[in-house]
Design a protein around this nucleic acid. Structure first.
Length: 331
DNA sequence: TAGGCCATCTGGTCCT
DNA sequence: AGGACCAGATGGCCTA
């Protein structure tokens, strides 16, 4: 793909006015006040601006410069561009507005899928939202870890399991996973030896010892959803062998319906976690029900730092749920 | 204040 | 022609 650099006005060109639709009202025609006007700030003019602006100028006032521009136009290779008439401008604008709306919707769909992915992560936290990239990394690690476990090479209760989960994750996210697993201090856990030197700010080794790290909020942390491991064991035991993987995801969160005996969860949590909060996906009855998020019933609640959690309105970023942002990356 | 993360707009490309 | 997808650009918000 050809990368087009940010186009600025060339030498000798007059400052061009922004497209007509931007005049006066800086909000877009579709009423979206969030439309960015930054494209026209600081004298930066993008391709569209140049086209529309210049052709607008050609239409509105014919002066000597336009003559020069037409002369340059005739030397240009390729198909000659059509004049941008008022009608064409309006059609272009309408198309652009529709495309923007589609793009927004598409990105919202992407974010929804990502949110669904977050909810089935082994350490789903309401108070410390994983970033997009961390969610994807953790998901990859989770798949790898479960695959190894299924092959019998990795115990879900082992430290190696957690190390696999933490591979390539930022320090705070690794701490979150470790906190969810409630494992003891581990020297360099989750950090490949070759990566350790790249950790710029690792205040403490992973594990309980780092809970007091200033970079990490105080508990509650997310919970390691033992039901996932229960699911894993059940699969190994053949309980779900009549279900296809696609059935697991039929509920939208990728988990099979569980109707087994209400025995204590079989997982590391039963050994290591002092108190296991019931997962929103697996209420005490052990009958699966869609999460509040999936039901659109995400109740407003106060997070650990007093921030209000609730439905995330991407059109009002100030309503974003609190998240712990990490500045430590290893890649 | 710098840097990370995010939402949004935008133009290009590919496909139907 | 129009939609989907992608990547660049930009500003806002937040945290260290």
């Amino acid at each position: 793909m050809m990368i087009k650099p940010y186009v600025r006005q060339g030498e000798g060109e007059e400052a061009l006015s922004p497209p007509q639709w931007m005049d006066g009202d800086m909000s877009s025609p579709d009423g979206d006040a969030s439309v960015s006007s930054h494209c026209y700030l600081e004298g930066g003019v993008n391709q569209q601006d140049r086209e529309m602006g210049s052709e607008d100028a050609q239409e509105d006032d014919e002066d000597d410069e336009d003559g020069q521009e037409e002369e340059n136009e005739s030397k240009r290779r390729g198909p000659k561009k059509k004049r941008m008439t008022k009608a064409r401008q309006e059609r272009f604008r309408a198309r652009r507005v529709k495309a923007n709306a589609r793009e927004r919707s598409r990105m919202h769909g992407l974010n929804d899928a990502l949110e669904n992915l977050r909810t089935i992560m082994p350490c789903h936290s309401k108070t410390q939202k994983l970033s997009k990239i961390e969610t994807l990394r953790l998901a990859r690690n989770y798949i790898c870890a479960l695959s190894e476990a299924l092959e019998g090479g990795l115990s879900t209760e082992s430290r190696a399991f957690m190390e696999t989960l933490c591979k390539g994750l930022s320090q705070p996210t690794s701490n979150l996973v470790a906190g969810c697993l409630q494992l003891g201090p581990a020297s360099g856990t989750g950090v490949r030896p070759e990566d350790r030197h790249r950790v710029r700010a690792a205040p403490a080794p992973l594990g309980v010892a780092s809970y007091s790290s200033p970079g990490l909020p105080s508990p509650p942390y997310g919970t390691f959803d033992s039901a996932h491991l229960l699911h894993l064991r059940a699969m190994k035991g053949g309980v779900y062998e009549n279900h296809s993987p696609s059935e697991y995801s039929a509920g939208g969160v990728g988990t099979p319906p569980y109707d087994g005996p209400p025995t204590p969860p079989l997982s590391i949590s039963s050994n290591l976690m002092p108190k296991q909060e019931p997962s929103p996906h697996y209420p005490p009855s052990h009958h699966y029900s869609p999460s509040p998020v999936d039901q659109g019933l995400y109740q407003t609640q106060t997070g650990y730092n007093g921030h209000v959690e609730g439905p995330y309105d991407s059109y009002h970023p100030q309503h974003m749920p609190p998240r712990q942002i990490t500045s430590v990356y290893r890649d």
